[in-house]
Design a protein around this nucleic acid. Structure first.
Lengths: 242, 242
DNA sequence: GTCAACCAGTTCTATATAGGACTTGGATTT
DNA sequence: AAATCCAAGTCCTATATAGAACTGGTTGAC
């Protein structure tokens, strides 16, 4: 067999290629939340694959939390993934149950040269830096500093403030076709510097919790690095292991 | 169809029953770490199942981190799961790389009536309470209070101290056939009370990190509840989301 | 002795097929 | 009008089979 051009693919197994294709089509917004995807049978026919292969690909996306299967009914896109999985830290200690998403205020968005440590993680120093403050129960509780590659998020800094919702990951998806599939969090403890203290309404030197997060695409490409700081006494971080 | 006795099973699908059977045999110590399990073909023959069904069951245990498949070679038991996955908090901030397991000192083991909150989680108030102190770099860094159901761990409090290693989960497995498959962690910050401060060698009122963990079996039964406290400034917690 | 070729055994990919379990919506009956 | 039945469509379980990809050991040629 002659090796044709476009061997970028390296001939991955069919079920992986289908998985990636579906992930791309989902990211492209082909289906709305809670809308049914084509059935296993259709996908098999359209892709000239067997049902077993299709099932394997779809199942991976289910395991990743992107899709949801309902027996007898269909396979559905599962948007609520956001608040549930990737927004599960800082469940406020005081107002226990609400489960409401805190509001957020954008403080700045600028295209800058990334600090070295950030550039190393993201693989580029051409980044957009976002400063954000999140409120809960009418008090600021989280001061965030976010870095995203300018190449992936071209023009992010020019989006009108009011079109950037309280959650960033849906914005990434809707406007830039970038899907955050996983993240590494690192929680530690420190004390507030001048500016952090001012933003959080506490005194410099007071105890704060620090969360550093690196977010990845489904393929493992780093998409975002952020550092978030909040008053230690209001902090609570949940995590499931295994 | 007549409902016979022993309908505990409810006739689960074959691949789930095989998964559970394998998990049980693993827990029973039938294979040592890094030892190969029977091949897919053998398991299929011995269980009168098809290879596809066997593969499905085995794959679940791989996903859970219990097993490891090596193409062309075999399926192997994967013991290192312990230190890696379930012991990944408190990666000491100072001694960065060592990755060594801290030593631990047992302070007490007694059969007690559980506090209400603990009883609610474990589903019983007949528990064994363990107090433990872990050292790292010759300093105490973690004071733990652990509760396990007496029914599952009968006689745990009578095991000689020197037979309880620095890690509890292997002891659960080796001596009680109890396998910890997952856990929920909850991290927060607080201040040290008298006894905690004394144990950790810090001053009362100093900042501490608090990790509350509930550990579960593969079936979701709660196996253990623990609360661990350590000096906040030495603390660092990692977690992977997604 | 060294190295290549081979071989048996293993996991991995992929297909085809059959029937079970469940959902949904329309037709039929009451 | 409401309850029931039915049928098509969906995902779920399970089997059988074929060949590819890979590993580890044995054999054979040199």
């Amino acid at each position: 067999m002659v090796e044709t051009a476009s061997m970028i693919d390296t001939r991955l197994p069919a079920y992986l290629r289908l998985r990636d294709e579906l992930a791309a089509r989902i990211a492209a917004g082909e289906w709305r939340a809670d809308e049914a995807l084509p059935s296993d049978n259709r996908l098999a026919r359209e892709g000239s694959l067997s049902v077993g292969t299709v099932r394997k690909a779809v199942q991976m996306l289910v395991d990743e939390g992107l899709l949801e299967r309902r027996q007898g009914s269909g396979t559905y896109l599962r948007k609520p993934a956001f608040n549930a999985t990737l927004f599960r830290f800082f469940q406020m200690r005081d107002a226990g149950s609400g489960q409401s998403i805190p509001t957020s205020r954008l403080l700045s968005r600028t295209r800058v040269k990334a600090p070295e440590a950030v550039a190393k993680v993201l693989g580029t120093d051409d980044v957009i830096r976002i400063e954000r403050l999140r409120d809960f129960a009418d008090r600021p509780f989280l001061s965030e500093e976010i870095y995203i590659p300018a190449s992936l998020f071209a023009g992010f800094e020019t989006i009108p403030d009011n079109e950037v919702g309280p959650l960033l990951y849906p914005v990434y998806l809707d406007r830039f076709d970038v899907f955050v599939a996983s993240a590494d969090d690192e929680v530690s403890f420190g004390t507030a510097d001048e500016t952090t203290a001012a933003r959080l309404g506490i005194k410099p030197g007071e105890a704060i919790a620090v969360i550093e997060r690196t977010a990845y695409s489904i393929k493992g490409t780093p998409l975002e690095w952020r550092i978030a700081r909040g008053p230690a006494n209001r902090f609570r971080y949940r995590s499931r292991i295994g």
